[in-house]
Design a protein around this nucleic acid. Structure first.
Lengths: 105, 105
DNA sequence: TTGCAATATGTCATATTTGACATATACTCT
DNA sequence: AGAGTATATGTCAAATATGACATATTGCAA
């Protein structure tokens, strides 16, 4: 099982250089990150389930493979908007989104 | 009961000037808009329930009253990211988010 | 009515997100 | 081993979202 600290570290780029430290996140910052990571994980799951490459998804959303990789990695440089748009483009249903939100830690 | 067309029109600024017309949205574009509008609506509900002014919320999220107004209006210039951050700052729980996503048309 | 607080709408310079690209790394195959 | 495919990571100019501000509009109490 993955530790809490590791999950925070996966949110690459977050809070680096800011006053507050990684492990001092407010509850709402925590939930925001967990939610985003959950959506990112769902994207990867749905994509592989559909046997699509990152390049395939990139074409669907008119973006690039590198951006899809960053989405799946939960990179801080990608917006939740883009992740949600990608999920929908890959065929996620409303209930898929509900599941993703529900399963945020 | 509100018509479908009206809900689209509430998504101010959307698709204006683009090739496709308001009423020709793909299913995923539809769901994306409905989802966003649902989150916006939830924000307004939660804010009023907590007896907060838009100015109060603006201070919580370090933004401005006008941006909060735009969020609640479902303005196309605001990101889902900001709406979610606002919801969490106002005290939304995970189940509040789940409900908002679930109740997207 | 007037006055005041809350909300709506428009604009704009700045900040953040974006797609694109290069390149690195991983994972099959033969 | 090498070749081919998929994924990861870094960078950057262009596109988009942002907070701040001005101002308009609403609603409501005196």
């Amino acid at each position: 099982m993955r530790s809490n600290k590791q999950k925070k570290l996966e949110a690459k780029g977050w809070k680096i250089g800011s006053a507050s430290d990684f492990l001092e996140l407010s509850p709402e910052e925590e939930l925001y990150i967990e939610l985003k990571l959950s959506l990112c994980k769902s994207l990867k799951k749905l994509r592989t389930k559909k046997h699509l490459s990152q390049e395939d998804v990139a074409k669907l959303i008119k973006s690039s493979q590198s951006r899809v990789a960053k989405m799946e990695a939960g990179d801080a440089s990608v917006s939740i908007d883009l992740v949600i748009k990608s999920l929908l483009s890959v065929g996620a249903s409303k209930s898929d989104l509900v599941k993703a939100v529900s399963s945020a830690a």
